[in-house]
Nucleic acid binder design. Structure first.
Length: 485
RNA sequence: GGCGGCAUAGCCAAGUGGAAAGGCGACGGUCUGCAAAACCGUUAUUCUCCGGUUCAAAUCCGGAUGCCGCCUCCA
């Protein structure tokens, strides 16, 4: 089974061939730590988390680097606004970032370097570019000369002429070419700085990624990823810097994820429609967001809307319910039994993932197994238990490659119920009491009363299931509750 | 102005040459006191429109319409 990935650089799906057999060196641009993460950050984190998990599942030894950009204009601005130091701003949002990533079950990368811990290396890279004639100094600033790098624009598919024609580049008389970008910026009064051969200053954007990718992965490395918006200028500039300095190829495969729109509009501060990860997880299980993202191709734009989230919430509940049903089956000491249909599902799953991480198609395998499981459980035939155990293991293993179904069933149910009762303002004991009251009514064949209780709960988005084990209640969202909480 | 992308059922969505995945919803059935859940079945003879290439096109080519992104900080 060979994996194909879409390479932004060539604009085609290509067979993935690592530099060193059996290993993958992956660098993904992390966040600039000046604010809380929103669901757009979540998409990128989830997409590359799945890339990481999938390579690992295929047996690759993956070195995965995700950086923090912890010095930058926006951080400095934030520090001034809040009256704290740039370092405190960074620390605050790094903490926030980790909370969010943990909530979303994002696996920890191998390395998570911070820009400011690599200043010496950056200075060294700037010196190299200066000595090679790719950079020039103006007062305390150092700029990269885009004309010195013949391939400039090849990644983002545009030429210098075209970019100039765009004419929306900043006017800076001092630069040799308006498209030249800062490698190093002289610090103004009150701004953070490091002492360097070019004077007191701080790094420009882009350079931290060139430095940290080289340090932890070497050049060239296999895959560089990030959001689509980073193609230009960020990744174009990283490439220009690194290739000019090393004379070597920078990256073999470029992978970029599409954007998240919010109710058909671009998320932006001015529209005030930015949904933070922290706010999402208050309302829904984090795997709902993951399922939603993975049911779309990672390169397509995706529209976040309440209806889709509710749909995926229902779908996720169904998967967990299948797990719950399996949990009720006595399977101690049972040896799992492989069967043909399971083999086929497995093949489909891997084929989908091998085709440029087609998670939407891979998910269909997961729903297939869940259906198979339910069917076998419905049969109630003891002899099927080994097959049930096999299918169950398979379901968990595929789902986990996508970072789904990672909660214990009980944890999930408790979480769902708690979230729901908070939303409707009913206490758990009150619900249990009503359920018990209905159980009594049913015993007495007072079905009128029983049905009345069921209706009351139903209006609160709670459904009752009378099973052989007794009466259980579950959360079933109803339209009138949408948007609340 | 330049570059690029998208248009598939009621909704979301995969599929880029050979019988239209999957999810949500709806409807019918099994089950049930009635339900719910689960399962079974039905729900796009057709993929925005118009031409063309081909034995064969949602998929390739040309055109039209509509939507979106990037070119400036941005995941």
């Amino acid at each position: 089974m060979s994996l194909k990935v879409y390479n932004t650089f060539t604009g085609r799906k290509e067979k993935f061939t690592p530099i060193h057999e059996g290993s993958v060196k992956l660098y993904v641009c992390g966040v600039t730590v000046y604010d809380h993460c929103h669901i757009g950050h979540a998409r990128s984190a989830i997409v590359f988390d799945v890339v990481y998990r999938y390579f690992t599942a295929k047996g690759y030894d993956v070195k995965f680097v995700k950086n923090f950009t912890d010095i930058d204009d926006k951080i400095i601005k934030k520090a001034q606004e809040e009256g704290i130091s740039w370092k405190e701003v960074g620390d605050k949002y790094i903490t926030s970032f980790y909370e969010d990533m943990e909530a979303l079950h994002i696996l920890k990368p191998t390395y998570e370097p911070k820009a400011t811990e690599h200043i010496d290396d950056m200075v060294h890279l700037v010196e190299t570019l200066l000595s090679k004639g790719n950079a020039y100094r103006i007062d305390g600033d150092v700029y990269f000369s885009v004309e010195s790098y013949r391939e400039y624009g090849e990644l983002s598919k545009r030429t210098l002429e075209e970019m100039m024609a765009g004419a929306r580049v900043e006017i800076n008389e001092r630069k040799r070419n308006p498209l030249d970008f800062a490698l190093w910026k002289a610090s103004k009064e009150g701004e953070p700085y490091w002492n360097t051969p070019f004077g007191k200053g701080r790094p420009g954007w882009h350079i931290e990624c060139s430095v940290m990718s080289a340090k932890y992965l070497g050049n060239p490395f296999d895959i560089h990823g990030g959001g689509k918006d980073l193609i230009f200028p960020h990744h174009e500039n990283e490439r220009a810097q690194t290739e000019s300095a090393t004379g070597m190829r920078f990256v073999n495969y470029w992978i970029h994820n599409g954007f998240v729109n919010f109710e058909k509009e671009k998320m932006s501060k001015s529209l005030g429609n930015i949904l933070l990860i922290k706010d999402f997880v208050k309302k829904y299980h984090p795997e709902v967001l993951r399922l939603f993202f993975l049911s779309n191709h990672y390169r397509s734009p995706i529209d976040y809307n309440e209806k889709s989230i509710e749909d995926n919430n229902n779908a996720l509940n169904r998967l967990y319910y299948a797990l719950e049903r399996v949990a009720d089956i006595q399977k101690k000491g049972i040896t799992p039994q492989k069967y043909t249909e399971a083999d086929e599902i497995e093949r489909n799953f891997y084929e989908a993932m091998d085709d440029d991480f087609n998670t939407a198609l891979a998910l269909s395998s997961i729903f297939e197994i869940s259906r198979t499981l339910n069917r076998m459980i419905d049969e109630g035939d003891e002899s099927l238990v080994p097959f049930i155990v096999y299918a169950h293991n398979q379901l968990i293993s595929f789902a986990n490659i996508l970072g789904l179904l990672e909660d214990e069933v009980n944890t999930f149910n408790v979480y769902e119920k708690q979230r729901h009762v908070n939303r409707i303002g009913l206490a758990l004991p009150a619900i249990e009491e009503m359920v018990q009251e209905r159980v009594e009514a049913r015993k007495n064949r007072d079905y009128k009363k029983a049905d009345r209780i069921r209706d009351i709960l139903s209006e609160k988005g709670i459904i009752l299931q009378d099973t052989p084990k007794g009466t259980e209640w579950r959360v079933k969202n109803i339209p009138s509750l949408k948007g609340e909480g």
